[in-house]
Design a binder for these strands. Sequence first.
DNA 1: ACACTCATTGACTGACCAGTCAATCTGGGC
DNA 2: GCCCAGATTGACTGGTCAGTCAATGAGTGT
Lengths: 212, 212
Amino acid sequence: MAAPVRNGGVDKRRLILDAAVTVFARKGFHHCRVSDVADEAGVAYGLVYHYFSSKEEILNELFLERWQIMLDAIAAIDSRESLAVREKLYEVAGFIIDSYRNQPDLMKVIIVEVTRAANSFGALHLGKIREAYGGIAEIVEGGRRDGELKETISADFAAMCFYGAIEQLLSAWIFDLLPQTEAEFERAKGLVVEAICDGLALPVADEPGVSG
Amino acid sequence: MAAPVRNGGVDKRRLILDAAVTVFARKGFHHCRVSDVADEAGVAYGLVYHYFSSKEEILNELFLERWQIMLDAIAAIDSRESLAVREKLYEVAGFIIDSYRNQPDLMKVIIVEVTRAANSFGALHLGKIREAYGGIAEIVEGGRRDGELKETISADFAAMCFYGAIEQLLSAWIFDLLPQTEAEFERAKGLVVEAICDGLALPVADEPGVSG
DNA sequence: ACACTCATTGACTGACCAGTCAATCTGGGC
DNA sequence: GCCCAGATTGACTGGTCAGTCAATGAGTGT
C-alpha cells in the first residue's frame, strides 16, 4: 500500500504519473507513446509496466485521483450550512478554477482527454462525472428548499448549465481563447456565478433608467 | 465540383461520408479502421482514398460541412431585426437542438470528436469554433445595445456560458445522462434560454415570502 | 556472504492499420 | 468496336507502438 520508496527517496510511480501529465498535456493521450512518458520520467520503458498495467490505466489513475478530490470538495462545500447557495456555488467555481490555476496541465488532461472524451472509455468515468453533476445538483436543491432559487428549472438542469459554463471556461483557457491572468481567474469566479444565478437580462426596473 | 455520379445514380463520396458518420459515432474516430468505413459504405477499401486523402480529412469534411450551416444559421438569426435577444437566443438553441434531434450521429461525431477534442487537431477547427462563439457574442452585443441585457457581463463571457450550457446539454443526451424525447427537446430550448437570461435565482420580491 | 524480493532495464515481438498501387472495370465519345 | 478517363478493387507494404520478458541491480534479513 505505502509507496515503495527503496530508491533515494524517489517514488518512481509518482514520477511516472507526473511525467504522464506533462506528456499527455503536450502531445495528447493518443498522440504520445509510452516511451515518451518513460523518457520524460527519466525511467526505463519497462518500468512503466511495472507500475501500471496499460497506458490507459495511467490516465485513469490521474483522473480518478484528482476527480475524487473535487467530489469531496463539492460535498464539503455543500455541508457548510452557514453558506447561501450563491456562496456555495462560488466556492465550487473557485475550487475548480483554482485547480486549473495550480495544475493547468493536469486539468487540461482531465478535461480534454477524459471529461470531454467520455465516450471512448468505460462507464467508470461517466459514473464519476455524473457524481459531480449530482453534487452540484444537491447544492442547487438546497437552494430551492431554502427559497433562494426558483422552481421552474430543475436542479439537474441547473447543475448542468453551471457545470457546462465552467467547463467551457476552462476549455477556453486551455485552448487559449481567453486570457489567463490572476485577475481573470478571480474575476471569472464571480462572473460565472452571477451569470448562472442572475442571468444576463437586465433586472426589470420600475423607472426606465434613461438619463441624459 | 458537381458530384461525379456515373454509377446508377449513387454518389459514392456521399455514401462514404454517411458511412463514416455511422461508424465514427458507433466506435469513435480513433477506435475504428478505415476498412470499417469502407465496409459500412459497401465499398472497396481503396475507394475511400480515391475521394479523401486521409481518414482525418473525412472527419474534417463532416465537421466543416455541418458547422458552416450552423454559422450561417446563427448569422441569419442575428440579422432578423424584429426579434428580441431572447428570441434570437431561443432560435439559436432551437437550431442546435434540432440539429441533434434530426442527425444525432452526425452531431455526436462533431461534438465528441471535433468540438470537444479541439486540441488534437489543427487551428482550423479552433478558428471555426471561435466563429460560433463570435456569432453568439454578436447577438448578445445587440441585446446590450438595445438595453435588453446588462453590461456587467461581457458579451464574450455571456456567449461562452450560453454555448457551454448547450454543448453540455447535447453531451448529456449523447452520453445518455438525460432522457431524449420530443418533449424534452422542446422543453430544453426554453429552459436553456431562461437559465441563461433570467438565471436561477428567485426574482427579489418586496415582501420576504416567508409563510407557514 | 548468501539468499530472497522487488525494482529496474531495454531489446524484442506481434499485431494492427493507414495509406499505396497496379490491375480491372465501366461508360461515354467517336 | 475502340479508346480514354475516371471509378473501383483489394492485396500488400512500411511504420508504428503497446505490451512482454529475460536479465541485471539494489536493498534487506539472517
